[in-house]
């Protein structure tokens, strides 16, 4: 992975910056040295351009996704990719060295450094040791840091226990983050989460606040719960943008006929679901 990522970074980075990173990677692989590694990790900001986005070719993205499903560098800046490469080198060290230094870096990291560290999690060893760090990271109110863990990152769905996953989804909603970018959101849906989401919707309704149609996605498999059926009836009764689409997406998957009484209401959208024009992604993108 280090080599594929270096190759991608080379396409956008200045030659001086790239050479510096490549030399640093080689030197640290040869013999890991703590202080120079710390300087290099923060010193990325002295070499690379934080405004320059990396430019992976379509094929590069596919290769990466094939190696680690769900992992993407789409829309990353150079700082992020350069630091992730350095973290992969850290991950090649023995367990105690890796964990001690990862913790030290995280404990003194600025915003972009934290973003890079959490972005690297799906590629790093010792995932069980990383779970508490990611859960702590999600307690942030800094959107970029939250996003680096919650969105477009396959780590949480692969390693989070249910309670942590449920908090991730609820907080993402609370922070108005796009749920369709949470990797594995359907896979990790569960009855407890569905109920918490329903309760959250009730709380929002009571306060007269808007409820994201994306909320209902994690409830789709739990329509045996009468509270959720009642919620969907309420959702289907209004014309707010996105609501009927959300109900249609759930009705389309209902094989037991529990929601048959809502079919007429969302009929036009069912066709869109059937031919793939309407998905949770397209709905999320338009909100």
């Amino acid at each position: 992975m280090v080599d594929s990522l270096l190759k991608i970074l080379k396409q956008s980075a200045s030659p001086e910056a790239f050479d510096w990173l490549e030399e640093t990677v080689n030197a640290q692989r040869d013999k890991f040295e703590q202080r120079p590694f710390y300087y290099a990790f923060s010193g990325v900001s002295r070499w690379f351009d934080k405004n320059a986005l990396v430019e992976p070719a379509e094929q590069d993205l596919k290769t990466i996704d094939a190696e680690v499903p769900g992992f993407t560098i789409h829309n990353w800046d150079e700082f992020r990719l350069a630091r992730v490469i350095l973290l992969l080198v850290l991950g090649e060290q023995e367990k105690s060295v890796f964990l001690e230094n990862l913790n030290a870096l995280l404990n003194t990291a600025d915003i972009r450094e934290q973003v890079a560290i959490f972005s690297a999690f799906p590629l790093l060893p010792e995932p069980d040791e990383l779970v508490p760090l990611a859960r702590e990271g999600l307690r942030t109110n800094i959107v970029d840091i939250f996003d680096s863990i919650a969105l477009d990152n396959p780590f949480p769905s692969a390693h989070f226990p249910e309670e942590a996953w449920n908090q991730l989804v609820l907080k993402a909603l609370f922070m108005s983050r796009p749920l369709y970018r949470i990797y594995g959101i359907d896979l990790r849906a569960n009855a407890t989460l569905a109920e918490a989401l329903s309760n959250y919707a009730h709380e929002r309704w009571a306060a007269g606040r808007w409820v994201s149609p994306e909320l209902w996605r994690s409830c789709a498999n739990f329509i045996s719960n009468p509270q959720i059926v009642a919620d969907l009836e309420r959702v289907a009764s209004t014309d707010e943008p996105g609501r009927l689409e959300a109900v249609a997406l759930i009705v389309a998957k209902d094989e037991e006929g529990i929601l048959d009484h809502l079919r007429d209401r969302v009929k036009t959208f069912l066709d869109d679901v059937a031919d793939g024009r309407l998905t949770w992604r397209t709905l999320g993108e338009q909100i």
Partner: peptide, 11 residues
């Protein structure tokens, strides 16, 4: 001893 961790950071 702590300062070297910070002085090369962005910003």
């Amino acid at each position: 001893e702590l300062m070297p961790l910070y002085i090369c950071k962005e910003g």
